[in-house]
Computed example of a mutant assay.
Amino acid sequence: MAVHPSTISRTLEDLPKWAHLLAAFGLQLAPIDSMVVDQTELSALESMSEKYLQMRRQQRLKGA
């Protein structure tokens, strides 16, 4: 991509403004290699993790 360094510099100065504008619309940016999950998925994962850890703890106590 042939972009002059000064153009990039000026654009980066406006980055916070663009980030706030996107946030106002309920949008957010994430790196391409990120895995984005919504709050419901995160809550489900946390719940399953907690149950798994409780089970492992109980197994360890019974085996000791």
Rank of each mutant, 00 (worst) to 15 (best):
Y52I: 04
S47P: 01
V37Y: 09
L45H: 10
M48N: 13
A30F: 10
Q58A: 06
L15D: 03
A44P: 00
A44C: 00
L61I: 05
R56P: 00
L42T: 08
L29P: 00
L12K: 08
E13L: 13
R56Y: 06
Q58H: 04
E13T: 10
T40M: 11
R10V: 03
T11L: 14
V37W: 11
H20M: 13
L29M: 11
M35S: 14
H20C: 11
V36L: 02
P16R: 07
E41M: 14
L53F: 12
A24W: 01
H20E: 15
A23H: 11
K51P: 01
S43V: 00
L21H: 12
S49E: 14
G26S: 02
D14H: 14
Q58P: 00
Q58N: 06
R10T: 06
S47W: 00
A23G: 07
D14W: 15
Y52W: 08
L42P: 02
I32W: 07
D14M: 15
Y52R: 07
A24Y: 10
A24L: 12
L45E: 08
A44I: 03
P16I: 11
F25N: 11
L12T: 06
S34D: 13
L12G: 00
F25A: 13
L21P: 03
A19F: 14
T40L: 11
T40F: 09
E50N: 14
Q28A: 14
L45N: 05
E50V: 09
Q39E: 15
T40Y: 08
D33Y: 03
L29N: 07
A24N: 12
K51C: 05
